[in-house]
Design a protein around this nucleic acid. Sequence first.
DNA 1: AAGTTCGATTGTTCAGAACAATGCTAGGGT
DNA 2: ACCCTAGCATTGTTCTGAACAATCGAACTT
Lengths: 233, 233
Amino acid sequence: MPRATAEPRRASDQVFSGLLEALLSGRYAPGEKLPTQRTLAAEAGVTMGTLREALQRLEQMGLIEVRHGDAMRVRDWRRHGGLDVIAHLALSSGGFEPGVLGDVFEARGLMLGELAALAARRRSPEQAARLRELAAAVSHAADERAAQRLDYAFFTELAEAAANLVFVLIMNSIRSLYFQHAERLPVTAAHEELAPLYVEAARAVEQRRPAAARRAVALLANRQREQVEAVAR
Amino acid sequence: MPRATAEPRRASDQVFSGLLEALLSGRYAPGEKLPTQRTLAAEAGVTMGTLREALQRLEQMGLIEVRHGDAMRVRDWRRHGGLDVIAHLALSSGGFEPGVLGDVFEARGLMLGELAALAARRRSPEQAARLRELAAAVSHAADERAAQRLDYAFFTELAEAAANLVFVLIMNSIRSLYFQHAERLPVTAAHEELAPLYVEAARAVEQRRPAAARRAVALLANRQREQVEAVAR
DNA sequence: AAGTTCGATTGTTCAGAACAATGCTAGGGT
DNA sequence: ACCCTAGCATTGTTCTGAACAATCGAACTT
């Protein structure tokens, strides 16, 4: 019997998820003092070492502040939280959070547009060729899963062609979000219909026309956004 | 005798920094097997528990892959790294990496532009007022440090007005980068000269003119970028 | 009243051991 | 000869208990 939602096996992961949930849902308010590590460990039924591993990750995300001889404090994730918070924020307790998901796809669309414009100026001949091939492959993708992989490959190549590390890393974060739940995020539902848009974007990049590239990609991203929003409800 | 560069005191932090450096510099190549936790701990002169805390953070960043009974593997940070990697990437071994820093400010400028456009459509009356006040305050800031704080507050408010969580979080990451080394990143060197641009941007947002807001902020960001690039050399 | 000392609280690291998952290899069956 | 299965070695994971170190606040001293 396969498990529906693949949950983390490590004890450390479970503690992490629990605390994360508590922090993001506001059950621990910003500025508030967190219970002792010893207390938290006892409550979670784990050792202090195990709890500690979870705390390190939370601190890394900017969600808690921990100073040696003092109590741990809850930080405001809106002010100090890193981008990886968005993944856990979009999935609060089972279903998707429609608002957050909307933000993700809005930001994604805007950034992909800028990415396309940069790529149109900087792409190498090889990158242009690969983009063309990937765009062409979308139209005859076997199933939706294959289309999804092509979509991912296309935008990864685009980010690479744009030659800006920041956008590359941001795209990594967003990708990890919709790869963890690919089955519920049909960005490539009607890929036969969307295929021409990939082709158009690839051509604009190849012809070094930033404005056209931005427009084509923005349009494509908007279509995907509509599809996702239609489902996540 | 005060220490020039405030280094982390926790043993766990030092181990983390060391491994991070090794991973980002390519001293451990992607796909390669990492030494055993026991080995790494022995080499670093710490306990396995301490080493483990560092590993958790690296895994959280997407830099390593660790599976229970198997050896740990190095992941390609270009493909799986999160946005927080950029901070450590921009500071490889002492000085700033000019290329990376350029990418950061390019991306920052583009995103702030989009942010301004969104804010012009969605800002509340209160947000418009606060932006106006912050912009006005820039012109008579006491010193550069004060100007820097106002700059930070201004763009935070802008991100808030844009009402998109993704951009808020991205700005958090970028801010933490240039707050850790504020003294070396003079984004507000000639703040008397830049002040009018803040005012113009605030006005465009208040008057709900997205295009004008984007233009003003993009111009402002570009000026800051030039100032930083002039210094980081 | 102000400064100092000291103890309680809390995070940090250590040491060694047992447990659990994975990959590999030798042995047995077809 | 080939497959596959059991067992072993390797490696990550968690536990137990303890000692160490930084911070805060209260009691004490001046």
